[in-house]
Design a protein around this nucleic acid. Structure first.
Length: 584
RNA sequence: GGAGGCGUGGUGUAGCUGGCCUAACACACAUGCCUGUCACGCAUGAGAUCACGGGUUCGAAUCCCGUCGCCUCCGCCA
């Protein structure tokens, strides 16, 4: 064996040297009397030339096939005049082989590393080892490594301790569905895989760790999406004795330094919006700042000019865009799309040389459409989309339409647009369960100004919780935590947890809080999402080496798989027949 | 839990308003020829129970029903 050079790094500076390169046969071009082999490894391609003078090697070159593993020894030579390949990093040189060894053979691969990505993704995932041989696939993992390394370097420099927490834990109420692991030693009892190391890291703060981080797998048994996997990796962080503002600044600095180090990108300071501002301006708690200007509040004018006899509290919201790219038909499509979202309707107002055009008909009193366009600052050849409805719903719909418009324009600004969203509500009303639930999690510190509201008007109480949003994707979520047992008990009671339940479910945390818990707070970043966005990928699957499919199965090993009867017996469990009726 | 899309040699697709399909094309593969190619070229050849099950029909890749798998979205995801 004895490789002395990576294929992709055999450059003109090595001309004259004898090297041994090793890797996979990418392509073979056999000219009868002369054989060219493109040899590929992690770093790229280099052309190996085998001529009939090289006895032994020539016969071998005749036999090799794509994806065989070979090594070639030879002199690095400049290519003859006019024979350079500008598409190849190593295109000005070639390795003139004197020896060629076959280390292993390959059957014809089901997905060809040489033939690009245009293959069914499931097949690529099933044979991920073949997919990974493609440099553009591996590249994402090179980036991921750089990101992780940059995070660790920053953390270490800022005195954060990497402390591991258990993977086998306890199921907790609230939040996502847990993955459960049955205990053999204690039949009938289960562990839960962590949805986050939340409670552990709070206990570490009580333990005086002061600054903790961990790059750690977490698990949530919920429906999957392009940006959601059942197991994923968090950059989990917790600190003591810092204000919310200090935490935000620290974390922003961390991400900035990671972008600088891993991508060479200098990020500007991140804007901050409160949750209420985000909803009002973008109709979502994860605004995509690339998708055009914010929503415009047109309530004052809208209420004045509307001729529909809408309720007094109706809010009016506008989206401003260029008109030119939208045909009449596309505008109709937008109206349909708004209905699909559940919005009552969508008016478009188009400003032309000779006034305005609109689909609003008699919805507005005379000149109403023009007045709305004025109020929204629509320029000539501009377009205004107007929606009306109750606060909240109309913003949500308009926010979705804003993204729809941006998608149709196809002009999302490039780059990384971060922001902080702060002051999330403490509670959300669950229609399903008919009770208050935590907007973030049950340990979230209420906003200091809203303590009274917890008892009197929980829905209006804000929390000291914050999110990092990047290009419309929720990238991180965190909060200051409650460290006072009484306050914690009050929050539990709003959530409808009885003292007996809290003792049984969270007693260990409440116990710890009896022994001097420091003020603390933290955050968790979705590492996979971060890398996905940095890589410009569309799916988490592109940045996870062996991802699960949409239905949670692993195409490589074929998990989940039935357990055999002996395993069930050991656990004292009996699986329900899959065709059995749902449990009562 | 719901909506939509897709499933045809190893791969990507065409065919899918039923018979002309004994399923076409490209790539890959095999054999042979070729000393400057780089998606090499040329010639010849092999390779598919059209995802699975059922139905309609004289006749189904094509129409209908169901199942499975994959993808996207809504619900869900503290």
């Amino acid at each position: 064996m004895g490789r002395t050079a990576y294929c992709g790094r055999v450059g003109p500076e090595r001309v004259g040297e004898t090297v041994t390169v090793a890797g996979w046969v990418h392509r073979r071009r056999d000219h009868g009397g002369l054989v060219f082999i493109d040899l590929r490894d992690r770093t790229g391609l280099v052309q190996v030339v085998v001529s009939p003078d090289a006895q032994g090697a020539f016969e071998t070159a005749d036999a090799v096939r794509p994806e065989w593993v070979v090594s070639a020894t030879g002199v690095v030579a400049a290519r003859p005049d006019g024979m350079a390949n500008p598409d190849l990093l190593t295109g000005t040189v070639e390795v003139r082989a004197t020896a060629l060894s076959v280390w292993s053979r390959s059957e014809t691969p089901p997905v060809s590393p040489a033939d690009g990505a245009n293959v069914d993704e499931r097949l690529r995932l099933r044979h991920r080892y073949l997919d990974l041989r493609r440099p553009e696939v591996l590249q994402n993992f090179v980036l991921r490594d750089r990101v992780v390394f940059a995070v660790r370097r920053w953390m270490h420099a800022h005195e954060f301790l990497d402390v591991e927490t258990p993977t086998l834990g306890r199921s907790t109420p609230e939040g996502a569905r847990d993955f459960l692991v049955p205990s053999r030693l204690q039949p009938g009892h289960v562990y839960a895989l962590p949805q986050s190391p939340q409670v552990w890291k709070q206990l570490l703060m009580v333990g005086g760790v002061d600054r903790y981080y961990q790059i750690v797998k977490v698990f949530r048994d919920e429906a999957l999406r392009a940006d959601r996997q059942p197991e994923f990796t968090q950059i989990d962080v917790e600190t003591s004795f810092l204000s919310q503002n200090q935490i935000l600044e620290l974390m922003e600095d961390m991400v900035r330094s990671v972008f600088q180090e891993a991508l060479g990108v200098q990020l500007p300071a991140w804007p901050r919006l409160t949750h209420a501002e985000a909803l009002a301006q973008y109709g979502t708690d994860k605004p995509d700042l690339r998708a055009g200007p914010p929503l415009v509040d047109l309530t004052a004018v809208g209420q004045e000019v509307e001729a529909l006899a809408l309720p007094d509290e109706t809010r009016w919201v506008g989206i401003v865009a260029e008109a030119a790219p939208f045909s009449r038909k596309q505008l109709d499509t937008l109206v349909d799309r708004a209905r699909d979202l559940g919005a009552p309707g969508l008016f478009w107002i188009r400003r032309t040389a000779d006034g305005v055009r609109t689909n609003a008909g008699r919805a507005f009193a005379d000149g109403g459409a023009a007045r709305l366009a004025d109020a929204a600052g629509v320029r000539p050849d501009g377009l205004l989309l107007v929606m009306a409805g109750p606060t909240g719903a109309v913003h949500r719909h308009a926010g979705a339409m804003r993204l729809e418009v941006a998608a149709q324009l196809g002009r999302e600004a490039p780059g990384f647009h971060f922001l902080w969203v702060t002051d999330f509500p403490l509670f959300e009303w669950s229609e399903d369960e008919h009770r208050w639930t935590s907007a973030h999690h049950p340990f979230t510190m209420p906003h200091p100004d809203d303590r009274e509201l917890i008892a009197t008007d929980p829905g209006r109480a804000r929390s000291q919780a914050y999110d990092v949003v990047l290009n419309g994707v929720e990238l991180a979520s965190g909060s200051l935590r409650i460290y006072d047992s009484e306050l914690q008990a009050q929050v539990f009671s709003v959530l409808g947890l009885t003292p007996a339940e809290t003792t049984s479910k969270f007693g260990y945390l409440l116990d710890a809080f009896r022994f001097g818990p420091p003020p603390h707070g933290g955050i968790a970043f979705g590492l996979d999402r971060l890398v996905m966005l940095m890589a410009g990928a569309d799916s988490l699957r592109d940045v996870i080496a062996f991802p699960k499919t949409h239905t949670g199965s692993d195409p490589v090993m074929g998990s989940p798989a039935p357990a055999d009867p002996g395993q069930w017996a050991e656990l004292r469990l009996t699986p329900w027949a899959t065709d059995a009726p749902p449990r009562p």
